[in-house]
């Protein structure tokens, strides 16, 4: 039957399946609210900081930074190829994201308690590159006809994208700070408990990524109801994470954990959603030269996964090192 409102055939089936899976993750997250918080440990009996805990948290952060870097690497490769590397600076995110990916892999496997000077330098450098990249993208949008118009926000250089690589660097940088915690001490960053700092950074990162997804899904007219997921689920995760990071040390984090896990899964299923979207475009995968570039960006959604992993690392830090 000719149908003018929803896709038909295999695409529809797969979309439904994926949606159900993501929905199940969401339900899991919601459900965990309903249960009373289990009395795991009382604040009075805070354990002595476990020297391995800091390293574990640091490696989790390396993994988060690496996931984010991978997303940026593939996404910026596709997008800057589309832009024909018109400007030599457009190779920067490829190089930096590849470096971030490399050092993050190294960090994830590194069980030593001390920061690594190369990792540390690369992460710090990448944070700055993110800021500079944002400046470049702002300039690109501003000089187009119409300036800061919807047209240029939709189709010009994406303002939020360079921040993702910056975030990857920042998370890595934080991981090095956590790693350098002397044995027996609570990890601190800039004089604040590390778990809280990482939690706030991850929460803000998720919020920014939601902004980017909202802009681009608005550009796509939210033509598919599943396009509302990344603008509804991660914000909740960001809020509960923020509450965990800023609130009293003893509050239940079980719900936060579930929301973050759901967000991490959402990031991965988003990739599958986008791949189906590419297949639905004119000519499908046979027309990949066009549809990879003009269709939904396949590598973009795992940015949520990376940030959710960072949030989970923050939760781990908060639980391992209650600060009051």
């Amino acid at each position: 039957m000719a149908n003018t409102t929803s896709p038909s055939g295999a695409a529809r089936t797969t979309l439904t399946l994926l949606g159900s899976l993501t929905g199940a993750a969401l339900l899991g997250a919601l459900h965990s609210h309903a249960r009373p918080p289990p009395a795991t440990r009382s604040p009075a009996k805070a354990p002595v900081p476990d020297p391995a805990a800091a390293n574990r948290a640091a490696r989790r952060l390396n993994r988060a930074a690496g996931t984010l870097a991978a997303s940026v690497l593939f996404d910026s490769t596709v997008e800057h190829y589309r832009g024909q590397f018109q400007n030599r600076a457009m190779y920067t995110p490829l190089v930096t994201a590849a470096m971030a990916l490399g050092v993050s892999a190294h960090g994830t496997m590194d069980e030593r308690q001390t920061p690594h000077v190369v990792r540390d330098t690369v992460y710090a450098l990448i944070s700055i590159v993110g800021l500079v990249g944002t400046g470049f993208h702002l300039f690109n949008v501003r000089r187009k006809a119409g300036g800061f118009s919807w047209q240029n926000l939709f189709y010009g250089a994406p303002l939020g994208a360079p921040m993702a690589i910056g975030l990857s660097g920042l998370l890595g940088y934080l991981s090095e700070r956590v790693r350098e915690t002397p044995p027996g001490q609570v990890p601190m960053i800039w004089g604040l408990p590390a778990g809280r700092v990482v939690g706030v950074v991850s929460g803000l990162g998720i919020t920014g990524t939601v902004g980017e997804a909202a802009l681009l899904h608005f550009r796509g007219g939210f033509h598919d109801p599943f396009m509302y997921l990344p603008v509804t689920m991660p914000p909740v995760a960001a809020i509960v994470l923020g509450r965990s990071a800023l609130g009293p040390a003893g509050i239940a984090r079980r719900a936060t954990r579930w929301w973050l896990r759901a967000t991490a899964i959402l990031g991965l299923s988003g990739t599958a959603f986008h791949a189906i979207g590419v297949g639905r475009d004119m000519g499908g995968w046979r027309n990949w030269q066009q549809n990879i570039l003009n269709g939904p960006p396949i590598p973009a959604p795992p940015a949520f996964t990376g940030l959710a992993l960072a949030g989970l690392a923050a939760l781990g830090l908060l639980e391992d090192h209650p600060d009051d």
């Binding site: 149908n3 003018t4 550009r219 033509h223 004119m282 000519g283 003009n294």
Partner: peptide, 19 residues
Amino acid sequence: SETPLATVSAPRGDSPSCV
């Protein structure tokens, strides 16, 4: 302004977005 056009900028049912 961008001209309002009757060709979709994102998929709609069995119509793929404009190429």
